[in-house]
Nucleic acid binder design. Sequence first.
DNA 1: AGTGGAAATGAAAACGGTTGTCACTTTCTC
DNA 2: GAGAAAGTGACAACCGTTTTCATTTCCACT
Lengths: 123, 123
Amino acid sequence: MSRQRTAVRQELAKESAFRSAQEIYARLRSAGNRVGLTTVYRALQALADGGEVDVLRSDDGEAAYRLCSQSHHHHLVCRDCGRTVEVEGRAVERWADQVAGRHGFTGVEHTVEVFGTCADCSA
Amino acid sequence: MSRQRTAVRQELAKESAFRSAQEIYARLRSAGNRVGLTTVYRALQALADGGEVDVLRSDDGEAAYRLCSQSHHHHLVCRDCGRTVEVEGRAVERWADQVAGRHGFTGVEHTVEVFGTCADCSA
DNA sequence: AGTGGAAATGAAAACGGTTGTCACTTTCTC
DNA sequence: GAGAAAGTGACAACCGTTTTCATTTCCACT
């Protein structure tokens, strides 16, 4: 684990919202951390491949990254402020398995994202 | 409503899956329809603004468009051959609303995609 | 410490989907 | 029909992301 990747991971750990690669790059730079944009992308990719971060696409096409815990879960994302809540969904897991099985599918995976406006933002 | 926009809408109506702007453009062109890529984008934008089509972002950053379907459903996608089955999920709808409500979120939407290997491909 | 090979880095260029520009054409409205 | 408003499309610009490739760092083994 190189200095740069450690820095990226630490930056992600500072806040639990989804953040863009560009934003993380800017923060690291303005904090005096010498790191290249390419490296930030690669670090995020590596972390995502290793299952340490979740990735999702915002409406404008930017990718957003967020450290996540090991256990399987889904996200409830505020569409205004980006705040996210990790939620479990045994009901969804069961439903996905059933539906897939009924159609003869095996090796089932699924992605579920729930969007809404959080209490603070709707106030 | 111009000839081009009508063509875009008709093309969307041919299939109920999410399709990219580029793909729709290619189909229209290869069908002999003289239309510009810019116009396809604008037509899709206009349809989306008018609430006639749904937009979502795929993992690679492309935007995907689909005529607003009469009935809300999700997709079961084979990861080998790409075959998709449209499935309903009342259980998921209920779960999403519950989870969001429990955390004070309003205006709830959600995306659910299930991936697996279909019977043909696993044989 | 020294060495060699694998992995990581980063500046710059390439890439690709999308959007802006602007001169031109089509379509409404009276 | 005439004038206004909206739409069109070739092309260039935009911007987030990925690739390239020469250089640097890390690490295992002597």
